[in-house]
Design a protein around this nucleic acid. Structure first.
Lengths: 109, 109
DNA sequence: ATTATTAATCGCAATATTGCAATATAAAGT
DNA sequence: ACTTTATATTGCAATATTGCGATTAATAAT
């Protein structure tokens, strides 16, 4: 085994899991924070900023891109990464729905 | 290798990664949604609701509990699970900080 | 053409995750 | 004490993730 049973869950649940899984790593959180702070980022900047090797950063960027959270545009020799707004908004809405659902509950076991 | 370099990241980044990693699975998203909807939940309800075996649900509950997102109270033969409000609020604030940081940015590469 | 510069890919070893059958634990009812 | 009910733990096979050295690809500068 070792394979997630995606077929028994809704499309929304699977989508949200993919997006959150992409963020759920300290390096990728740091990368996203850096991109948000600087608006755009190239791989080399992140290698200098965080203490990780270039292939490692490149792979994390790839995972964030696969999840749709960031987009990369070729800019000469380098690649310019930035937040992919539509997907970012999708995530924001999913999460706020999540939080809103609990919002006013206080009673617990 | 195969070990995340937690030491080079901030405490906040690592904390957020742990919380998001716990949520980042469709089964655990479904479990959290069910708990939020019903306010409290026992393991057996979730086994009936989702199509997963009892040990599998139990393990997912354990991971959510380890991350601090839920808490379980023994209630006779069963265990009553509910959202752990302080940690849930911590997550909410971290995420809203995240979203707020990007909020008004539109320019991209 | 040659050489930097920048980023992606490959290959690998170490480790983590996923799902479940089998089993164990523990409280409640008889 | 015995049985039922509800959950946790163990052990295992399949798969996924993590990090990086070595290499490759592709553009830019000389």
């Amino acid at each position: 085994m070792g394979l997630t049973k995606t077929e028994i869950f809704t499309e929304e649940q699977n989508r949200l899991a993919v997006m959150l899984k992409a963020i759920a790593h300290p390096a990728r959180i740091a990368i996203l924070q850096e991109i948000i702070k600087s608006n755009t980022c190239i791989c080399g900047d992140l290698v200098d900023e965080l203490g990780l090797a270039q292939p490692t950063i490149s792979q994390h960027l790839k995972e964030l891109k696969n999840a749709g959270l960031i987009q990369g545009t070729i800019d000469g020799v380098s690649v310019c990464y930035c937040i992919n707004t539509p997907v970012w908004n999708e995530l924001r809405e999913q999460m706020s729905g999540f939080f809103a659902a609990f919002d006013r509950k206080v009673t617990c076991c």
